[in-house]
């Protein structure tokens, strides 16, 4: 047995292996669904390709791919701790001989980096399909979605160039927290909570902006972009870390099973 009672790579691997094997049907189905959705998007856009709409199609394709990616990441994050919704699932989770860090990290690896990597692999395949079909229907000019543009540097203070990935990670971290915070319907509840926070921030920003105009004061830069300004730059990372920390703390607390 490992002597380290806080973190062990071999234990992490065992937890991850067990999770993947026990949930392989769901994971395979989910992965196939993502691939199918991407391919359908690529095929539809490929069939609709025309010379005039070549540039617009690239934008539409990129947006659609990213929407599917975000949706997939959110849904996977929401179902990550679904087993805790039953007393027996919670007991087996809490009595698993591994630390909460290892259990949490193993699921995070599946829901975040592996899910994102799979989504981008699917985008490549969908793009190949779209371009192939467009060429097949004899459109001469087809633009490729510049996948590297999806990683375009963010504006402002951001030091992390993966703009879109960062956005997805931020939103996903809320859903990850929501999955451990609420017993049922956590997807809908998290959407509601994010909406409520957004409205609150928008009202605060509007209030501050109106007050600045009224009193003739200079409007702070961030409020021009409110409320999106709150979620740009360094605040994103703080939010991600904050949400991950809360998720871990919540997991550590056995009270997750005291709700029955």
């Amino acid at each position: 047995m490992e002597t380290n009672q806080l973190f062990s790579l071999s234990r992490l691997w065992r937890v991850m292996h067990r999770y993947m094997v026990e949930n392989r049907a769901t994971l395979i189905l989910g992965a196939a669904l993502i691939l199918a959705l991407m391919l359908i998007i690529g095929a539809i856009l490929g069939f609709q390709a025309t010379e005039e709409l070549a540039e617009a199609q690239v934008e539409a394709a990129a947006t659609a791919y990213m929407c599917v990616t975000a949706l997939a990441c959110i849904i996977i994050a929401s179902g990550l701790f679904a087993t805790l919704n039953t007393p027996s699932g919670a007991v087996s989770f809490l009595t698993l001989p591994a630390t909460p860090y290892e259990i949490c990290l193993s699921r995070w690896i599946i829901a975040v980096p592996l899910c994102l990597a799979w989504c981008f692999a699917c985008i490549f395949l969908a793009e190949a399909a779209r371009i192939g079909i467009a060429l097949m229907v004899r459109v001469e000019t087809v633009y490729r979605v510049p996948i590297d543009l999806l990683f375009a540097p963010n504006m402002g203070l951001s030091i992390f160039p993966l703009l879109y990935v960062k956005g997805i990670l931020t939103i996903q971290s809320f859903f990850l927290l929501g999955s451990i915070l609420w017993r049922g319907q956590n997807l809908i509840k998290t959407i509601g909570a994010i909406g409520a926070i957004g409205v609150f921030l928008y009202l605060v920003s509007s209030g501050v902006t109106i007050a600045c105009i009224y009193f003739g004061a200079r409007i702070p830069f961030t409020f021009y972009l409110a409320p999106t300004a709150y979620f740009s730059g360094v605040l994103c990372y703080i939010l991600i870390i904050f949400n991950y920390t809360l998720t871990l703390i919540r997991l550590r607390e056995a009270e997750v099973i005291q709700r029955w």
Partner: peptide
């Protein structure tokens, strides 16, 4: 404190089970 070494010494059979599809 749920140390892995302690948890490895305890096995619980709950009254209701939820087992995976394997």
């Amino acid at each position: 404190s749920r140390y892995p070494r302690t948890m490895a010494e305890i096995m619980v059979i709950p009254d209701r089970l939820q087992l995976p599809a394997v």
